[in-house]
Design a binder for these strands. Structure first.
Length: 577
RNA sequence: CGGGGAGUAGCGCAGUUGGUAGCGCACAUGGUUUGGGACCAUGGGGUCGCAGGUUCGAGUCCUGUCUCCCCGACCA
């Protein structure tokens, strides 16, 4: 491709209001332009990269015997109501009405449409197992889109769905996907971690996420350097904390705390570490109030909390945090000054395991601007139930080896789910088994984000000058840079090399601009191999070959360019498997 | 949804007490250049986000509204 015949708008300046490096580079290089918040146009170069990623995904999906289809983006709201996810997605699902006033929505994912399709088409166990996949635009009305394509409202996802007769067979489909995803990310030049995750709204059972480490990630994982334990922060466990009661218990004492009742303020005011504070959060479990107790440095995992069943309370509802006025009405104190200590009312208490045996804690005194010190949880609080409900903090003990855990921000690129019969049962996706018995299909679903792979690749492969593309997803493999196109010898040599290299999809920078512009742009765009043709080296019939990662910088005879490039290309192809 | 910030040329920005809307880059033409974002000359390009209001006069003051960015969001 010749530069002058293509739309490659590079920007010299850092775009306004953009903070995340991959986002800024995507704009400067001319990959994307924002249309509205969380919605983007892909320019030729950006789309070329997406297509490279899509091709890798398609190859690996086809390799595991998955069949590509295309489901509609539009579906009826009624379909989503059948599985309860219309309410589950809430405001995040885009909804609209057709001219007949029928309620429609834009699919945020496709478990419902695919299950409905399969329920109509598949009848016998003999047609199983099967895997369908599609590469399609998803719509999610995110509350806060962020970082360009990192968290968008309209984005491209490869989603696949497996259909098996039972769990044993499902596990084979699951492992196939897991392996395919490893190959995909490796070929895209990414180093990733696979962590246990929360299936949230999607699944019913186990799920795993494919994460790439990045300070700009939306998500976070806990990892143990010692034994390799890793999990999403929402599901990550904490080992037993054994030194909670290392001090002598002091007397319970009510003290004045004339500051805001937040953990940070109280910790600063009393000069006690946050892990000696006890957060008391009032929730409603169904209609019954429950105190939830955490160490001050911990945050609650709603994911864990919603899996807790409180003994002797019947409810089909879940946990809901009490509104500030509900707290005030019930306890006569504001949020920040409440606790189950010395409470006249009888309210059940759910306490985090990490508080076991703790003493000399600080917590609210159920009176505004007062706290208790010297709280001994075993002595002063009647705990109804102990549970694992918190997000681990940096330095907490690993659940496997008791060494320190690390909390690390990551970009989520893929997520694979064990769905069980969550969708097949309500939507009637059944087959007859060998005995002629009707059986719900055992399903799995598997998603991987195309643009997020692009963003993560930029995020992990860039320097101060621009992007350094991994070979397989690079928009061009080679860029040919004639320094002064008006010198006939340079021009002729460049054109000859351009035609020799046609198999490498080279970009020919045939602009009549100064050398500096070409160097800057080549480094910004990040094409892996640069061929520089200038007067100096041509005197000895040579051209320069550099790689963008700076590992190679050499001169070769102009007749040997093709074989040199072939060699470099081969060595830089991903050696993932 | 709560808090903070911003909308002026394609991009990045300036615009004082209210008084003819500017700079750099980019773009067009001509010329000189050509190994790390060249130079000279000339030129085109704006309902100052939108709608009201105050005023002889509004980019500037007031009101409303839209959009975008950042932080936070059942975490006491």
């Amino acid at each position: 491709m010749k530069w002058t015949e293509n739309f490659l708008p590079t920007l010299k300046e850092h775009p306004k209001n953009i903070e995340i490096p991959s986002h800024a580079l995507s704009i400067r290089v001319g990959l994307i332009r924002q249309s509205i918040s969380g919605v983007h146009t892909y320019l030729p170069l950006g789309w070329k990269i997406c297509l490279n990623i899509i091709n890798i995904i398609r190859e690996e999906m086809n390799n595991i015997g998955a069949q590509e289809i295309l489901l509609p983006a539009l579906s009826t709201a009624e379909l989503w109501a059948k599985t309860g996810r219309l309410a589950g997605w809430g405001a995040e699902i885009f909804r609209l009405k057709d001219r007949g006033n029928r309620e429609l929505c834009l699919s945020p994912t496709h478990e419902e449409p695919i299950t409905e399709f399969v329920s109509k088409e598949i009848r016998s166990y003999k047609e199983l197992p099967c895997i369908f996949y599609q590469i399609q635009t998803k719509f999610r009305d995110e509350p806060r889109p962020r970082g360009g394509v990192l968290r968008a409202r309209e984005f491209i996802m490869k989603d696949s769905y497996s259909f098996d007769i039972d769990e044993t067979s499902f596990m084979e489909s699951y492992v196939k996907h897991r392996t395919a995803y490893e190959k995909i990310l490796t070929r895209c030049g990414l180093s990733y971690k696979i962590v246990d995750a929360s299936s949230g709204l999607m699944g019913s059972g186990k799920s795993e996420e494919f994460m790439v480490s990045s300070p700009y990630g939306e998500d976070a994982i806990v990892t143990c350097k010692n034994c390799g334990y890793s999990a999403n922060k929402e599901t990550g466990k904490i080992g037993e904390i054994t030194n909670n009661a290392k001090e002598q218990s002091s007397e319970l004492e009510k003290i004045s705390t004339p500051v805001k009742g937040t953990v940070d303020e109280i910790s600063k005011f009393l000069n006690v570490p946050t892990d000696k504070l006890m957060k008391s959060i009032l929730y409603f479990y169904g209609s019954e109030p429950i105190f939830v107790l955490l160490r001050g440095n911990h945050e609650i995992s709603m994911d864990k909390l919603n899996k807790i069943k409180i003994a002797n309370i019947e409810t089909n509802g879940s946990f809901r945090i009490a509104a500030p006025n509900e707290v005030k009405n019930l306890l006569n104190a504001d949020v920040g000054y409440i606790s189950p200590v010395n409470l006249s009312k009888s309210i059940k208490v759910l306490a985090a395991n990490s508080l076991k045996n703790s003493n000399n804690l600080v917590t609210g005194a159920n009176e505004n601007l007062y706290h208790f010190t010297g709280v001994d949880i075993e002595r002063d609080i009647q705990v109804t139930q102990w549970a694992d409900i918190e997000i681990p903090d940096n330095g907490d003990p690993c659940p496997k080896c008791n060494k320190e855990l690390n909390l690390e921000p990551v970009i989520e690129l893929g997520h694979i789910f064990d769905l069980g019969e969550k969708y097949s049962t309500p939507l009637g996706a059944n087959v007859l088994d060998q005995n002629g018995q009707k059986k719900s299909i055992y399903m799995g679903s598997y998603g991987i984000g195309v643009e997020r792979i692009m963003a993560a690749a930029i995020e992990t492969h860039n320097d101060s000058e621009g992007i350094i593309w991994p070979m397989e997803i690079a928009p061009f493999k080679v860029i040919i840079i004639p320094l002064n196109i008006s010198i006939p010898d340079i021009k002729a040599t460049a054109e000859k090399i351009y035609s020799e290299l046609s198999n490498f999809d080279p970009l020919f920078d045939n602009r009549d601009v100064s050398a500096g512009v070409k160097f800057k742009d080549a480094n910004l765009i990040g094409i892996p191999i640069q061929i520089i043709i200038g007067e100096n080296s041509l005197k000895t019939n040579e051209v320069e070959i550099k790689t963008r990662d700076k590992k190679i910088n050499t001169k070769v005879n102009k007749e040997l360019v093709l074989e040199t490039i072939q060699k470099i290309y081969k060595e830089n192809q991903t050696k993932g498997y």
